[in-house]
């Protein structure tokens, strides 16, 4: 009788596996070494996944569109974001969802005679709105323009003289114009950006898919994309946050000026206006006939940028004549 049927000519189980399919010790060890090293190689090739800490939670993934959230669901989402901020930055933010106020439509006016191009608005905005410091994201771009032209091609945003203003130039800060006919909203394939009743075009950072169509559609270069994970130093985070405003963003979403929703919907002036040393910036409710912006629109010769593209901006420039 024989319990093995190999044809190696050896003497039984010493040389080859017995008939029930078991392999011998040497071949088992060798094969498992190859298998183990193969698995190690695959695991090592997936190592970059360890850096994916910015994935977002399941709750975030399952969260509904902003406009479909019930008050209870909104509170749940706010609590989730508060916890995320607390984990990441070590502070409990004052985060809330601010709705547009009744009878309010915001308008911005900027006096180009007064602007000296000091860029304080740019940096106050970055600090207020928790924009990424590195890579750098800024909502406001200040253009240095030669006197006597509005040819945007002649604008220079890299000027760095010892002091401003320079003779023969004027300075034109450009940010989101909060258009009444916004091309960025029209092109969004997922309705992640829309115009609110008070005229502010907002973005739901949890709904944005990062296709950057809106960036391409905007004629004012107002929208910015988070190509990398935004980095804000812990000690510089602004804890006064709004859901549609300055709460921290993830990698891969758009952001832009929202007229400091966390300030303006509570009656305050935006940060760029507060910091402007010359008072070139004016902001207010155009539906209030006694507001500063109403006075400017009634009494100054205002104009909008790129009027011919039909965006109907709520951002007006003017000169003191």
């Amino acid at each position: 009788m024989s319990d093995h049927n190999c044809n190696c000519g050896g003497n039984g189980s010493r040389h080859c596996a017995p008939g029930n399919g078991k392999m011998d010790r040497r071949s088992f060890l060798r094969k498992s070494t190859v298998l183990a090293s193969g698995i190690a190689a695959i695991a090592a090739s997936l190592a970059p996944l360890r850096e994916l800490t910015d994935l977002g939670s399941v709750d975030e993934f399952l969260q509904k569109h902003y406009k479909e959230l019930s008050p209870a669901e909104m509170e749940k989402a706010l609590e989730r974001i508060r916890k995320e901020v607390e984990r990441q930055y070590g502070i409990r933010p004052h985060l809330r969802d601010l709705k547009p106020m009744d009878g309010v439509e915001f308008v911005y006016c900027l006096n180009l005679t007064r602007c000296i191009g000091c860029r304080k608005c740019v940096h106050a905005c970055v600090a207020e709105n928790n924009q990424s410091r590195s890579p750098e994201i800024q909502y406001i771009r200040v253009l240095k323009m030669p006197n006597g032209t509005f040819d945007m091609e002649k604008g220079d945003h890299n000027y760095a003289p010892e002091t401003v203003p320079e003779k023969g130039f004027f300075y034109m800060p450009v940010q989101c114009h909060q258009c009444k006919n916004p091309p960025c909203v029209k092109v969004c394939p997922v309705d992640a950006t829309w115009q609110e009743a008070d005229g502010i075009t907002v973005i739901d950072y949890d709904w944005c898919i990062g296709c950057r169509y809106c960036e391409a559609a905007c004629p004012y270069f107002a929208r910015r994309f988070n190509f990398a994970t935004p980095s804000v130093p812990k000690e510089q985070i602004n804890s006064d946050m709004a859901y549609l405003g300055n709460r921290p963003r993830h990698k891969g979403v758009m952001e832009k000026c929202h007229f400091c929703i966390q300030r303006t919907r509570e009656g305050k002036y935006p940060a760029c206006l507060e910091v402007c040393p010359t008072g070139a910036r004016k902001f207010g409710n155009i539906l209030d006939p006694d507001s500063e912006v109403s006075y400017i629109l009634k009494n100054k010769r205002v104009f909008v940028l790129k009027e011919e593209v039909g965006t109907l901006p709520r951002f007006f420039y003017y000169f003191d004549v």
Binding site: M101, N111, T264, E266, G267, K268, Y269, L273, E274, C276, P277, T278, G279, K282, F283, G284, N285, S291, E292, Y295, I296, K300, D320
Partner: peptide
């Protein structure tokens, strides 16, 4: 005249006079 109505010079605080 512009300064009196708040057009010339710096402003800060509240645009909404009912709040501040």
């Amino acid at each position: 005249r512009d300064w009196e109505v708040g057009i010339h010079g710096r402003t800060s605080g509240f645009w909404d006079r009912q709040r501040g």
